[in-house]
Structure formats: structure tokens, C-alpha cells
């Protein structure tokens, strides 16, 4: 299969020069759960050439309701291994690097210094502040998504932005829990928010369109309510 054939349905929304830009782009996806699996699948299909996939966890039964790379056969398998297999099946041109670890501020640095964008698909508010600090240190933009039940949010944070401070507050409580601890996460909401994240990543890489910088996209799929909130 030629590259042209593979990406022919990306045309003319993406032009051939942009397809090449994506092919050279390096993106880190932090967290391979409901959001991260969706983001990784979409970026692999659209043709982002280098994916750095980070997660220290293994698949369990409770992941099957929403996490794209989990299957019954893969219960107990590391999420990074499952993701690498799936992406290779979809698009063997993609260079995948996997990092079987839970991120800390210091363990982000070697990865983030190599990539153009990092995608926050983590599941705790504390970790989100940590990854923002790491992205700031490496001077790369961060696309963050979060979900709970049938609701979700997405924002794009540049290194010089206040980011999560505007969303969760300057003196947010340590171990602040989101409502997802009570309402869980549904499949269609995870993939909906992952789609917005993947779109933000592609726009950042191509320097096209409008990104959610200093803005927060919020959605409640139960009531079909969608808003873009100005954070400044």
C-alpha cells in the first residue's frame, strides 16, 4: 500500500505538505485509558509519525466498558504493549515508543524533551498539575482532557499559560477528587473528549484553525449542552 493510498481520504482537508508534517511530528500520550486509547488510535490513523505512549498500568475487567485497546484476552496485559500492537496493526509506518511507567516530574523530562506536543489523558487532578509543570519545563504545549459520566472538558495549555490554576484554583486541595469517582466514565463520552483532544493536537502540529488556548471546552452529553468558556 502506498502512502498516498493510505491517506487519500485525508485529502483535501489536509494537503500533501500537511500530511508530511504530521508524518514527522512527535506526540506523547500520557495515560492509555479511555482518553489515551482513543487519542492514540486517531493520531495513528491520521498519520502522526512518532507516538510516545506512557502508562504503567495493566488492563483489568473494569476497563472494558470504554478503553479502546482493552479486550477480554488482554486482561492483565500492560496497556503500553496492547497499544503498540494495535497501532502496528492499524499503521505500521508509525514509530511507537512505549514507556511502562507512571509519570513523575523527573521521569517526564527525557520523553517530553523529544516531542512537539504532550496529550494529558491522566486520571487524577494532582497528576495533571505535575504534567503541566513538566510540559512547561520542556517548553511544549499540553492538550488536556478530563471526563466524568457523560461530561467532559478539554483545554490547550502553552508553556507560559496559567493553565490548570485557572480551572482548579491556585490553592486547590491536594487529592481533589473529580465527580468521576461517583459517576464513572461512559464509552461515548471518553471517545468524544478524545476526539476533541486529537483535533487540538493536529491543529497545533499544523498551525491551523483555532485551539482552546485559555479556553475550556465543556460538554454534557446527557443534556446536549456544549460551551467554550473564556478562562481569562
Amino acid at each position: 500500500m502506498t502512502t498516498l493510498e493510505r491517506y487519500i481520504r485525508n485529502l483535501d482537508t489536509l494537503n500533501s505538505e500537511e500530511q508530511l508534517v504530521l508524518g514527522d511530528a512527535r506526540v506523547c500520550i500520557a495515560g492509555l485509558g479511555g482518553l489515551g486509547g482513543g487519542v492514540a488510535e486517531m493520531l495513528a490513523r491520521i498519520g502522526v509519525g512518532y507516538l510516545y505512549l506512557v502508562d504503567g498500568d495493566i488492563f483489568s475487567m473494569s476497563n472494558l466498558n470504554r478503553q479502546l485497546f482493552s479486550t477480554e484476552k488482554l486482561i492483565g496485559t500492560h496497556k503500553t504493549d496492547a497499544a503498540a500492537l494495535r497501532i502496528n496493526d492499524i499503521n505500521s509506518n508509525i514509530h511507537v515508543r512505549t514507556f511502562r511507567r507512571f509519570l513523575t516530574l523527573d521521569s517526564c523530562e527525557d520523553i517530553f524533551d523529544e516531542v512537539d506536543v504532550v496529550v494529558d489523558c491522566l486520571d487524577s487532578i494532582d497528576d495533571r498539575f505535575m504534567i503541566q509543570e513538566a510540559a512547561h519545563r520542556s517548553s511544549i504545549p499540553l492538550v488536556s482532557g478530563a471526563i466524568a459520566g457523560t461530561s467532559g472538558q478539554v483545554t490547550t495549555i502553552f508553556p507560559q499559560d496559567k493553565g490548570f490554576e485557572l480551572i482548579y484554583g491556585t490553592h486547590y486541595e491536594k487529592n481533589l477528587k473529580g465527580i468521576e469517582t461517583r459517576v464513572g466514565n461512559l464509552s461515548f463520552c471518553a471517545l468524544f473528549v478524545a476526539s476533541i483532544q486529537a483535533s487540538e493536537v493536529v491543529k497545533l502540529l499544523l498551525n491551523r484553525g483555532e485551539v482552546l488556548r485559555n479556553k475550556l471546552f465543556i460538554a454534557d452529553l446527557m443534556s446536549n449542552s456544549y460551551e467554550i468558556m473564556d478562562l481569562k
Binding site: 495515560g31 482518553l35 491522566l122 482532557g145 478530563a146 481533589l176 468521576e180 465543556i218 468558556m229
Partner: peptide, 10 residues
């Protein structure tokens, strides 16, 4: 007026 709860899941 809009209000949104804390959301942090992935």
C-alpha cells in the same frame, strides 16, 4: 450563569 463540577477522569 453556568456551573460545572470538578472533573478529572481519563
Amino acid at each position: 450563569l453556568g456551573m460545572f463540577p470538578p472533573v478529572g477522569g481519563g
